[in-house]
Design a protein around this nucleic acid. Sequence first.
DNA 1: ACGGGATATGTACGCTCGTACATATCGCCA
DNA 2: TGGCGATATGTACGAGCGTACATATCCCGT
Lengths: 192, 192
Amino acid sequence: MPPAASPEPHVATRRHDPERRNRIIDAALAVIAEGGVAGTSHRRVAERAGVPLGSMTYHFTSMDELLHEAFSRFALRISERFAERISAATDLDSLVSAIVNIVHDDLAAGQDELVLTLELYTLAARQRAFRQITHDWMRRSRAVLERFVDARMAHELDALIEGLFIHVSLDPAPRSRDLTRDAVRRLLSRSP
Amino acid sequence: MPPAASPEPHVATRRHDPERRNRIIDAALAVIAEGGVAGTSHRRVAERAGVPLGSMTYHFTSMDELLHEAFSRFALRISERFAERISAATDLDSLVSAIVNIVHDDLAAGQDELVLTLELYTLAARQRAFRQITHDWMRRSRAVLERFVDARMAHELDALIEGLFIHVSLDPAPRSRDLTRDAVRRLLSRSP
DNA sequence: ACGGGATATGTACGCTCGTACATATCGCCA
DNA sequence: TGGCGATATGTACGAGCGTACATATCCCGT
């Protein structure tokens, strides 16, 4: 086959194509969301990404490295959306509304985020390297919240959001948006 | 060897010895705490419990059944201790102190509980059968809290406890007991 | 005492897995 | 254009897995 013009001109010496690596990472997240870390294997990820098995060990020295990169990317994505929604608030009232939306809408958006979040927490509970990811994630969340409240309140608020999200997700008992709104508002209130 | 007198007299027709089954379940929890659900196998649990591999499939039709029983027992244990500590409170102030102790001391007691809790949540996020366990667990927690606050507040308080526990556990940033106490107190306060 | 059903165990099969490594293909420079 | 590192892939190996099932052991009623 005659070599067609390269679709994208290479810059200098392109030694490495990051696109393939990225596809593998995204495929890994999809596989994890579907079957959990327990059900994730090089072969499954390779199939999902449309790459040969050999690519796995070529691009990632180990499964742990792949998981680490995948969850880092995931945490970053969630952080970005969190920041967007929170930053759009203009005062405490709209901050409360933004939080309520985050807690309830992210859930409705699909189970995948819940699953990936909990899989990450599970890894973090046992391995220091993954705890760094959750640590950075929480730090970013607090930094965003600190545009509206002080550092102490940001800690508390972030924890409440976490708990509400998990309980809304894992408990079929009806939990209205009103309840969430009340809880957030009361936490934000000045002590009597 | 001459048959010595049976150490415990059997009641009527003892068809089945629950002790072995119990040992297997406890061994499963230990193995899960150590290596996660992902690293749990029939063989590992059998070795830990000191029973032959064949006992696994004899007492439990599948790995899922074993996991289900193990996590049910775990959730019940935690619930019982939660109930004891909360019920010992006499007023709202001592309730707050009890909650602070639960959030901070359970963590110090060891990582095992955190790990097992998150492993359970992870399963619950994907499988209805395990979500029933978290559902019942949360219902029991609320029932205990409702001795002090109304149902709505019990929901909110339970969620806050969850979030604080996880954030204290998964984030190395220093989180004092004072901060926890403040958050709980403020959530419990009447709206201004 | 002993036979037979209930209870428990050892073993082997087929499968999936991570990984190593020999091989193939590419892309650039002389 | 030719060739040679760099980049990428296919394959095979050994280990660990769940599970089925033939066999062994126990216990009780007769």
